[in-house]
Structure formats: C-alpha cells, structure tokens
Design a protein around this nucleic acid. Structure first.
Lengths: 208, 208
DNA sequence: TTATTAACTGAACATCTGGTCATTAAAAAC
DNA sequence: GTTTTTAATGACCAGATGTTCAGTTAATAA
C-alpha cells in the first residue's frame, strides 16, 4: 500500500510543468511549428527528458488536451446545479466564470489549437469533443433550460442555441490567440469591457 | 500593347487551379502539415512546376489568402450600397449571401487557416486583417447602421456588435472545417437549417 | 566504501520535405 | 530540318527535427 521506499535519484521534474510549457508553445506556434527542444528548454530540461514522461510528441499533445479543461468543467457544473436565482443572472455567472477560469488563462488557447489540429489528430479531437465540448454544451444547455422553464428565455437549451450563445465569447478567445498581436494595434477598448459586452449580447438574444 | 507573339512551349498550367488545390489542402491539414508535393500532385503537376509560379511555400500561402476573399467582398458591398428595404431583411440577405459565397464554398476554410497560422505569418495575417477582416467588418457595420438609423436595431454598427453578430456563423464554419467529420456522427439537422437558425439568432440580438 | 537503482543528458541517427537545377519536351522562328 | 525559346520534370541536396541510447549523475542499500 504505502512505503514507496524510493531508490535511486529522486525525480526533479514536474510533469504538469512540462504540460503547461507545451500548452503555451503549442498555442503560440501551432503543433507542427513547435519544436520539442523548445518545450524542453522552456521547462528547463533536456529533450531526452521529455521522452521519460511522454512516448512521443503526439502523446504530449494528448496530455495537454486531457489535463487541460476537464477540471474546469466540474466547477461550472457545480454552479449550475446549485443555482436558485434568475436565468439571466445564471448565464452571466456561467459565462463570466468561463472567462475567468478558461478564457483569460493559458487554457484559453486550447480551442484555437484544437480547431487547427482536429483533422490531423482524429483520436485527440474525439477526446476533446467528448470530454470537453459535449460536457460544456450540456452545461450551458442546462442553464438555458433553467431560464426557459422560468419563462425568462424564449428558447430551450438545444444544441444550436448553446452554440450561438457561446459563439461571441469563443470567437473572442480565438481572435485573442491568433490576431491578438495584430489587432491590438488598432482597436483599443479594454478586454473586460469586451467580455461584458459579449455576455450581454448573448443574453439579449435569448430574451423573448 | 497587343501582339504578345508567343514563343516556345505554351503554358498548360492554370495558376488559379494551383491556388485552389493549395487552399483545399492547407485547410484540411494546416500549413505545416501540407506537403508541396501533395499540392502539386492534386493539381496534376510536378513539385518543380509550383516553383515556376510561386517563389516559396509561403508565397503560395500568401497567394491563397490574397486571391481568396477579396473578390467576394465587392459583391457584398454592392448589396448594402443599393439596399432600400428593411434593416433585418438587409442583414438576412447579407449573412445568407456570405454563406452562399464563402461559408459553403472552399473559401469557408480560410478563417480556420488564418486563425491557425496568423502568429506564424505576421505579414500574411496583416494582409488578411486589413483586406478581409476590416473591410468585412465595415460592410456589416454599414448594414447595422442602416437598420439603426431606421430605428429597427438597438445598437449602432460598432466593432464589438459586428463581431458578436458574425460570431455564430463564423464559429459554425470553423467547426465545419475542424470537427465537422467528427461531429457529423452525432448531430443530425441539415446545414441549411443550421445557417438560417444562426442568422435569425444574430438578428434577434440586434432588435430593441 | 561500494554496489545498485533510477533520473537525466545531449550527441548521434533517421527521416522527411522545402527548395534547386540539369535535362527533356514542345512550340515558334528561320 | 535546324535553331531558339519557353514550360515542365523529377532526381537530388541541405537543413531541420522527432526519436533513441550509451553514458553521467545522484540518491539508497549493503
């Protein structure tokens, strides 16, 4: 059971740190253009060490996706399950929470990465689709149904409504991680204002 | 002026066809994972022939972006300029036209490609941002302002409103070219219905 | 102290692909 | 028919990078 009785040199490397570095670089440069040597260097280890923790570059990519968003989903599910206020306020909380927990963190780069690479890695795409997208959609659908049942929203939480509700925020985070450096030069409003605006825009579309 | 007086072997290759093949493969596999040999093979020419028409892989990519969407924009601009009906109907025409001319054609893959590669190719991203995104946003902004001036829309056509209005359709086309093959297995409604739904969703958010 | 075990390294290997170029093909000019 | 000019080819080159592995380091056990 216990008494691991460590022998040999103790491990210095934190695998989670390797995954974080890989996420950052994959998001910034894309999968193919990210060299494992850069990931290793960013994490302060050698290229060979990566192979002690991941079988291949693709396995590292899979780990980035697997360890990324699933934990954050649980938090949102708890929020919706325990809600007792109004439907629009639930949506505000849910979408603002998504932004805080995912959108504005490094995890916000995952949607861009997955959209770019889904067709090259069907297995990983299927994992993301099942464990992240479908669970996330079910979560938002429950929130919309909550408001619909109270007569505050005109549509029930079907798949297309969920998709359209999330679209403004999702597109924002995609743009932030792709054209962000370019667009920053021109448009000037603050990020927080942009997010609030898009949340209210989506809620407006749900009202009767 | 005229009398080109052709000498030597006449050209058999249509550069536009090379660009079309490159677009298809870039969209399917991404920039880095697309081999020039595959592009050449798809177009029925040899790899060396590509270099008679494009200096480098990046130049081919730039051509794909440059020749892609700019022509379609002119059509939309003419529609808005000559419109005399209601604001919501103008938006319906504009968004449905975008779908017919871009979304459901191979050109619909360009947004995914640009989001994936913008940070790797700042020059091309800047070109796309200036010639496609900004012109496209100005076009939609004009349509929203048209309805706003008639009291049919609550918001004027500012940048954030335009972005939120286009988001459902844009995200749909991104998904179609990334998770499309995977998601097809589960959700079943027709594409045309999906598009109509998203157009009406965006218009609903604009109403007072 | 010595032996043993596990973590870690980085040089070397194998492959893949963007890019080049000597060669061949096909047309017009003479 | 011969020469000239342009189009097209595909074998080849060079650089980059995912992957491996013999060797090194640092801890415990004897």
């Amino acid at each position: 059971m216990n008494a691991p009785v460590r022998r040999g040199r103790p491990a210095l490397v934190d695998p989670a740190a390797l995954i974080r570095c890989a996420l950052d670089l994959f998001v910034e440069h894309g999968y193919a253009a990210t060299r494992l040597e850069d990931v290793a260097h960013a994490a302060g280890v050698s290229k060979g060490t990566l192979y002690l923790y991941f079988d291949s570059k693709q396995a590292l990519f899979a780990a980035v996706v697997r360890e990324g968003l699933v934990p954050a989903l649980a938090e949102g599910e708890a929020l919706v399950a325990g809600w007792t206020g109004s439907g629009p306020d639930l949506m505000r909380q849910l979408l603002a929470g998504w932004w805080q927990l995912i959108g504005e963190t490094p995890l916000g780069g995952l949607p861009k990465l997955m959209i770019a690479e889904a067709r090259n890695f069907p297995d990983i795409a299927e994992l993301y689709h099942r464990e992240v997208m479908q669970r996330g959609c079910a979560l938002v659908a429950r929130a919309i149904d909550y408001g619909h049942a109270r007569g505050e929203f005109s549509s029930p939480g079907d798949a297309r409504t969920v998709d359209a509700v999330m679209a403004p925020l999702l597109l924002y985070v995609l743009m932030k991680h792709s054209f962000g450096p370019i667009a920053d030069a021109c448009c000037g409003a603050s990020e927080a204002d942009d997010i609030r605006f898009r949340i209210e825009f989506s809620i407006q579309a749900l009202l009767p």
